[in-house]
Computed example of a mutant assay.
Amino acid sequence: MRRWRLIRTPPRSGAWNMAVDEALLEAVAAGLSAPVLRLYRWRPAAVSLGYGQRGPRQVNLAACRRHGIDVVRRITGGRAVLHDRELTYAVVAPEQGGPFPGGILENYRVISGPLLALFNHLGIDGRLVPGKTRAGAGPLASSVCFTAPSSYEILCEGRKLTGGAQKRQGGAFLQHGSLPLDLDLELLWELLHPEGGQDRAAGLTALEHSVGWINRWYHPTLDIATLEALFLEMFAAGLDLQLVADELTPVEMQRADALIAERYGRDSWNLAGR
């Protein structure tokens, strides 16, 4: 049984969360850390943009300010995600070895296994997506991550239940993803709908048919503590791991602080891509 670090951090800002993920990726790539499973949340709620996105074209900045919601850009690809009432995970490990065969899609598939087991345990009919795209999400899919499933992500009744994105660096990879407990579709539309685009009613209809969350199907409603416990159980069993509770090292915290100053705390990085 392989030993991994389990790091559970309290709710923090979007800048801090993304900086910590990158600091852990650097540590694993440098051989300074064992593989890591990190569980975390966001305070305040945040919109994270994919690495290739630029803020004003992908997110309604005025609406984010109005609702007190952070905007941060990830080092991973993909599309915009609203992080609010959810459990977020980060897997940081060597590209090959242990449970991972090394290919990007294969590593996605490995991580999707415990997620699928989690949903099935809850009685939610989760199914793996065989390909990268599907029709029917409408124009909103150009910016919103949860309207367009990628390979080995999970749908229920045609609606996307999980979102994940991956970054490879120095022989290691970071995959972070979201498991929404609840989701406010009107808020999601307002935040991720740039001015002058798709009709609101049509957009909400597209979201209704494209987006899923756990408490949409699980009754009575599930709480975050129970979801975390189930996630850890399924992840450890599915990948045959011993998860050892740990904390960020002083070096990792120092590096995260530097990354906030250099990147994630700056509009030039988050909104202009510089």
Rank of each mutant, 00 (worst) to 15 (best):
F231M: 06
E208S: 01
P194S: 05
A63G: 08
A80E: 10
G113R: 15
W4S: 00
E95I: 02
L227M: 11
Y218F: 01
S142G: 14
Y264L: 08
K160D: 00
H176T: 02
W269N: 05
R3W: 08
D199C: 10
G196H: 13
L174Y: 06
G138W: 05
G126M: 08
P194Q: 08
Q175I: 01
P139I: 00
A23M: 07
Y264N: 09
G170V: 08
P44Q: 04
P56R: 11
L227D: 12
I69Y: 10
A261Y: 05
S151N: 00
A62W: 14
V72D: 11
R12Q: 15
A117N: 15
V244L: 09
L32P: 06
G238Q: 10
S178H: 02
R109H: 06
G52W: 01
L183Y: 05
D246W: 04
L32N: 09
R12P: 11
A63L: 12
R2C: 07
G52Y: 01
I75Q: 10
L122K: 00
R41E: 12
L259G: 14
L241R: 04
L87G: 12
Q166Y: 02
Q242M: 03
I260G: 13
T205P: 01
E86I: 15
E228M: 15
Q254G: 02
D223F: 02
N120S: 04
E153T: 02
A256N: 15
S210C: 11
R43C: 15
A34Y: 02
R12H: 13
N60V: 06
L230I: 11
Q58E: 12
Q166C: 00
V36H: 01
L183G: 01
D199P: 06
L207W: 11
G97F: 09
R5W: 04
R216V: 00
L179I: 07
S33A: 04
S210T: 07
G123R: 01
P94H: 01
A117G: 13
A93L: 10
C156A: 11
L37A: 15
G77N: 09
L248E: 03
V47P: 07
R12G: 13
E190K: 11
G163P: 02
R109Q: 12
A137G: 02
S143T: 07
T147S: 13
P56D: 07
G113D: 14
C156R: 03
D240R: 03
V244C: 07
G212M: 06
Q169I: 09
A165R: 00
G171H: 11
A93W: 05
L271Y: 05
E157L: 00
